[in-house]
Write a protein that binds this DNA or RNA. Structure first.
Lengths: 344, 344
DNA sequence: CTGAAAGCGCTTACAG
DNA sequence: CTGAAAGCGCTTACAG
């Protein structure tokens, strides 16, 4: 009974510690530490005894304790919109690879496009003392991060810039990409072009809309506001928007879809219709080349975004203080058929 | 100079600690701890003074220290094949949601189908003292985990079972799904059916091949071994395999593709050919319904796999010791056209 | 080559 | 209601 009470409640399942190893090997704590960390200055014989004790006890160093003493956790946090979105898979993987090259682990979380959830996640990561953060922001206001930045948490924003603070950002050229895509439709004879995008508070959505307007203006085309629809990317909303544009008295003859979620739904809507409508989508999709007609897209390189952001982060972690930077990666127009259809 | 040397090298960017807060508020350390953790028994006035000090200093509790003392890290690890694979996105997200419901963070990593990398990752997570692990194994031999399991690290395998140890597993019905898919082709008149799958050491690949053979046998059809091709899922290998089967003197009239990576390549190969070949793929794909013909698949629910595995994990973490269990989730045949084409 | 002491930033157990 | 002491499992700085 007393025995039972004395046991320290089996923390971590009661794992052996360096102290246990030291006792079993008949050496001091520091010697065990030396062996575990492959530090020099241990006799082969001593080392062997320590190794045996480690094997026998099934010892594995507790990195939580190590981290507390050393000051760096060798982990970084990645907060994005939705891990399940095919756009973020390659981005996450790229961040992971860079982290791995630097001996760091990746803690991953989805904000679900909810600013409060983003903040909650980011601050939880700060409390865990991640060395740095890569953030695809949902929030518009990152002043909550100021104390953390001041305390030295390296932070790089990716896909969208930070709100109301100065911070590094790695972005795709949303404006230029959308402008090029819409200009492509115009070049193929379209005059009435619809734009269906994500919520306007999202930076990329606003930039792509700006690109759409710029292309229309450059061609001297007035935009009827009924051709523009911004909102959530759920299928019902997008379907309603597309249907309205297509069933108007003067229907659009082409649609520019603001991101991969929107494109998927628009393709489905168009597939059910007989009249031919041109389509260019922002973001590439797997199998896009196999649709009939092939899907013309403005492709961005999600892996390059992630890689660039993570490399930036580690450079910050190592390097001296410079002013925040912004990197913009180019997009690529991939014509496959749907964007080259003439107006009916 | 002496000043400089005395500074503790700006660990964590020199963040304030509870001790600093206590000093500033003129209270004891434990009182700060009470306020930070919303424990009862603090006068409103004292609490206010502490809160002010927290604000002023930009204090945020260091969870690394907390974890060391408390024994649980409130984090779980997820090791899978490739974060960038569209199959694993929804699975990861589902694990994340369950973790979040339990107040835990997710540390995520890709094994890249490399057993050594899996082991390295898993052991790094154990050293960080994650409370539990969800593993999509690349390795065939998990005896390296035995000391960790003995030490109480809860572990659930998902998508594929553990090798050479007893452990919980949540799987899809690979055997039954493949058998049903092949039976579906047979029911549509096919006799010469190809099977292109992943490497045979991967459990799901072996099970799906077994399902293929079972369906053929059940229909009294002999399998010509030139119809079966297992190996990596890179496009070159799969394309060569498909081409060989289709260009043989007695070509296959239908192909069963062992997973989403294989299916994508086979669809591309078939799209370039004039002769009509039936196709059923294991795993659903976005846009599969929009191909011509629509792609018939055996769908598995990746999110359900992740959710079930994570819920299992937390039940283990809370509950008493039971024998390892295996859960098998059903698959769904979704006919869309490609699997219903008759043989030529 | 080796080890005892102090400390990382918290929480626990206890005493006032 | 409040706080001093001990301890979580390591590493650091130092002494032998």
């Amino acid at each position: 009974m007393a025995e039972t009470l004395r046991r320290p409640e089996h923390r971590y399942g009661n794992r052996p510690t360096m102290k246990d190893v030291a006792a079993r090997a008949g050496v001091g704590l520091k010697t065990v530490s030396r062996v575990v960390n492959s530090e020099p200055g241990v006799t082969p014989d001593t080392e062997r005894r320590v190794q045996e004790a480690i094997e026998a006890l099934g010892f594995r160093r507790n990195d939580s304790a190590r981290v507390l003493r050393k000051g760096r956790t060798a982990s970084i946090g990645l907060v994005l919109e939705d891990l399940a979105d095919p756009f973020y898979g390659p981005l996450s993987r790229a961040v992971e690879e860079v982290a791995r090259d630097h001996g760091a682990l990746l803690i991953n979380g989805s904000s679900a496009e909810d600013p409060e959830r983003e903040e909650e996640l980011v601050l939880a990561l700060c409390a865990r003392r991640v060395d740095g953060l890569v953030i695809v922001p949902a929030s518009q206001d990152h002043r909550y991060l100021e104390p953390e930045l001041a305390a030295g948490v390296a932070t790089v924003f990716v896909d969208r810039p930070a709100g109301r603070i100065e911070a590094d950002a790695v972005l795709s050229d949303s404006f230029g990409g959308a402008r090029d895509g819409v200009a492509h439709l115009i070049a193929h004879g379209h005059r009435r072009i619809g734009f269906i995008g994500d919520q306007p508070r999202i930076h990329t959505a606003a930039e792509r809309l700006r690109g759409y307007r710029a292309a229309m203006a450059a061609a001297g085309l007035a935009v009827d506001e009924s051709w523009v629809s911004l909102g959530t990317t759920d299928a019902g909303r997008v379907e309603a928007a597309a249907t309205a544009m297509l069933d108007a008295p003067e229907p659009v003859t082409a649609i520019f879809a603001g991101n991969n979620r929107v494109t998927v739904t628009v393709v489905r809507v168009l597939a059910r219709r007989s009249r031919q409508v041109a389509l260019v989508g922002f973001d590439d999709l797997e199998l896009a080349d196999l649709l009939q007609p092939g899907l013309t897209v403005i492709a961005q390189d999600a892996a390059a975004l992630g890689r660039t952001a993570a490399e930036f982060l580690f450079r910050r972690l190592e390097g001296g203080p410079e002013a925040p930077q912004r990197v913009v990666l180019p997009t690529t127009l991939i014509p496959r058929g749907s964007g080259e259809l003439p107006p009916v």
